[in-house]
């Protein structure tokens, strides 16, 4: 009745990502002087924190079975919005709330287009991303935003508590909150059910429309929050500041789907994914590998993780 699976492919499907993580860690420890140190370790965590917060939002979107191609643009927009508002003298907390609300509204709007109008999320969020990119340029006239920002705001991205960066602490709070939300609340369960089988969830009385929209809202919200933290870290904002996050975000979240159980996205999986991408970025930078090789490596990671999930999915279908 219960089918047990053995063999190399299922081993890699199950533990491949973790094995790759360990392998990468060992290789860099041997090859890269200074890689294996407390300060570099903290460095890796700080570098990956923004990527993780962004990807965990996108993970929520994957959980309900939708895609989001607009998150990098949402992050850029939110980054310049919060910067402009603060520089213009508005209270920084109010500015943050406004930037987050804009992010959430974008997700809500995309979600409504996807569920009620019935346009695929791929197309909806692609178009939304392009629109937002234009809006961001229009809003900034294409130039970076900088000026005086209050110290407490800058502390978010730059401050330390003891020897731990505040960004890293925020990352772990987001990780725990997201993991608890997905695994231990009924809303998270409904999201998983919606992504797992929309019709079955609907027939079981789950308001699938609402949870699909919620997934897209979380994705935009995570991106907006990332944009705010980015501004705080840099003390300035650039209309294309978060563009580079698109590839890394995808790599991270797709990798995350291969960690715990294949094909199922989860915040903790995304954390492992972000760690892998973070270590890869850090090690390659320390090795002096040119930036374009980073891109090649990340592209290969996306393909590999998708190959693993689709092989596994095929196996499940045949079983």
């Amino acid at each position: 009745m219960i089918k047990k699976e053995f063999g190399m492919t299922s081993f890699f499907a199950k533990y491949g990502t973790i094995a790759a993580l360990i392998l990468l860690f060992i290789v860099f420890s041997i090859m890269v002087p200074g890689f294996l140190s407390y300060s570099n370790f903290i460095n890796i965590l700080r570098q990956m924190s923004l990527l993780f917060i962004l990807s965990v939002g996108f993970t929520m979107c994957l959980i309900v079975g939708e895609l989001d191609l607009s998150f990098a643009n949402v992050a850029s927009l939110s980054s310049v919005v919060v910067a402009k508002l603060i520089v213009s003298g508005l209270n920084y907390l109010i500015s943050i709330v406004i930037a987050l609300s804009i992010g959430a509204s974008i997700g809500l709007f995309s979600g409504i287009l996807v569920t009620l109008v019935g346009i695929s999320s791929l197309i909806t969020t692609l178009a939304m991303g392009i629109i937002l990119s234009g809006v961001t340029y229009m809003y900034t006239k294409g130039v970076s935003v900088y000026g005086h920002m209050p110290a407490p705001f800058l502390q978010l991205g730059r401050g330390m508590i003891g020897s731990i960066p505040i960004l890293v602490i925020i990352m772990f709070i987001v990780l725990i909150a997201a993991q608890v939300f997905v695994k231990q609340t009924r809303f998270g369960r409904y999201m998983q059910a919606t992504g797992g089988n929309r019709t079955a969830a609907l027939l079981a009385g789950v308001n699938v429309t609402a949870y699909k929209i919620l997934g897209l809202v979380f994705s935009s919200l995570g991106a907006a929050f990332t944009g705010i933290l980015l501004t705080s870290r840099l003390g300035a904002a650039n209309p294309e500041g978060a563009a580079g996050f698109l590839m890394d975000g995808f790599a991270t979240a797709l990798l995350g789907q291969t960690v715990i159980s294949v094909g199922r996205a989860s915040p903790i999986g995304t954390f492992v994914g972000a760690l892998l991408v973070g270590i890869l970025n850090n090690g390659m930078t320390l090795l002096g590998v040119p930036y374009y090789v980073h891109d090649i490596a990340k592209g290969v990671i996306i393909i590999l993780s998708v190959v693993i999930t689709s092989i596994h999915a095929l196996k499940l279908e045949r079983a």
Binding site: Q192, N197, A201
Partner: peptide, 15 residues
């Protein structure tokens, strides 16, 4: 239509 195949038995039973 009746099941969410990738959720566990108890998750399906109590949905």
């Amino acid at each position: 239509e009746g099941l969410i195949l990738d959720l566990s038995i108890k998750e399906n039973l109590t949905l």
